[in-house]
C-alpha cells in the first residue's frame, strides 16, 4: 500500500537497511544506514525490526506527503519536522512531513510501521547509486509499506533519553590499530591519537576526510588489500580518510586505524566543525 509521496528530496534521500553483506569479493561494499543506532531506534518506535528498510535523509530540505494514515518515526539528526527526532506518532492522510532546518548531526531517519518496500538487490534494499544498484529518491516517487499489524498504537512514543544522542558532543571515538599501524613512525602515531579531529565538508557515504593534523604516511607503495568499513587510510597528502559504507572494498593506502563500529555511528553524524578525539580500543 502506498504510504508516502516524495515532494522534495532535499540534499539527498534514499532507502537504506542494514546493508548487503556477503558480496565484498565481487567489489560490492555493504552500503546501508550510516548511523545504525538512530536507524534502529526509528524502526523500533514503529514496531519494526531493527533492519527494516527506511529513509535516510541528508541534512535538510526534504518534504513528503502522507498517502495513507500510518505511524511514522523520526530519529537521528534533528531537522525541524513536526515529529521531532527520536519520536513516533500517527500522521493522517494528506498531511505533509517536512524537514526544513538541520540543527544537529547529518543523517535523519524516517521509519514507517510495516517498513518501506523497496526491491532487494543482493539481499538488501539499500540504494548504492554509485555502483549501479538502486537510485536516490526523486520528487514524485511514491513509496509503499508492508502491511500494518492489527495492534493499534495511539499517541506519541519516544526513545529513552539515555539512547538519544547529541551529535554536537560526541564521546571519545574508539579506534583499533590498523593493519599498517606499525609502519607509522611513533611520532605520527602519537600525533594521530593526540590531535583533535573534525570531518571535512568533502565527505560523503563513500568516505569521510578528516582534518586536524597532517600525518606523514610511511614511505613506499603497498599492494591494495581488502578493507573493512571504518578503516582510516592515510594517502600521501597526509589527510586521513575513513572508509564509509559505500566506500571501496579494497584500498592501497596504509591504514593507521580502524574505527570501532559502535563509534562509527557517532562519527557518521559529525558535521564539519564538530571536534572529536580518539581513544585506543585495545
Amino acid at each position: 500500500m502506498e504510504v508516502l509521496e516524495i515532494v522534495k528530496t532535499g540534499l539527498g534521500a534514499s532507502v537504506q537497511d542494514l546493508g548487503r553483506i556477503g558480496w565484498k569479493r565481487f567489489g560490492v561494499p555493504p552500503s546501508g544506514v550510516m548511523d545504525p543506532h538512530a536507524a534502529a531506534w526509528a524502526n523500533r518506535l514503529v514496531g519494526n525490526s531493527d533492519g527494516a528498510p527506511l529513509l535516510e535523509l541528508l541534512l535538510q530540505g526534504a518534504k513528503f506527503r502522507v498517502l495513507t494514515e500510518r505511524r511514522f518515526a523520526v530519529a537521528g539528526a534533528e531537522a525541524g519536522a513536526r515529529i521531532s527526532a527520536w519520536h513516533a506518532r500517527s500522521i493522517a492522510r494528506g498531511e505533509v512531513l517536512e524537514f526544513p532546518r538541520n540543527q544537529k548531526g547529518l543523517w535523519t531517519y524516517v521509519a514507517v510501521h510495516g517498513g518501506f518496500e523497496a526491491g532487494e538487490v543482493l539481499g538488501s534494499s539499500s540504494a548504492y547509486p554509485r555502483g549501479g544498484i538502486g537510485r536516490m529518491l526523486q520528487p514524485g516517487d511514491r513509496l509503499s509499506a508492508g502491511s500494518a499489524s492489527d495492534v493499534l498504537h495511539v499517541g506519541e512514543s519516544w526513545t529513552a533519553w539515555s539512547e538519544q544522542r547529541d551529535y554536537d558532543a560526541p564521546p571519545l571515538s574508539r579506534v583499533w590499530r590498523g593493519p599498517q599501524w606499525e609502519l607509522f613512525d611513533p611520532a605520527e602515531q602519537r600525533c594521530f591519537l593526540d590531535a583533535e579531529w573534525e570531518v571535512s565538508s568533502r565527505s560523503d557515504r563513500v568516505g569521510y576526510r578528516l582534518e586536524g593534523a597532517r600525518l606523514n604516511a610511511p614511505a613506499g607503495e603497498m599492494r591494495s588489500e581488502p578493507v573493512v568499513v571504518g578503516s582510516i587510510q592515510v594517502p600521501p597528502n597526509g589527510q586521513p580518510i575513513v572508509t564509509m559504507r559505500d566506500g571501496p572494498t579494497v584500498g592501497g593506502y596504509p591504514k593507521i586505524g580502524i574505527v570501532d563500529p559502535e563509534s562509527l555511528s557517532w562519527l557518521a553524524q559529525c558535521r564539519p566543525g564538530v571536534r572529536f578525539r580518539w581513544a585506543p580500543a585495545e
Binding site: 553483506i21 565484498k24 569479493r25 591494495s224
Partner: peptide, 14 residues
Amino acid sequence: IVDFSAAFDKVLLE
C-alpha cells in the same frame, strides 16, 4: 564468517 574477500596476497575474513 559473514563476509570474505581476497586481493593479491591477502584474504579478509569478517
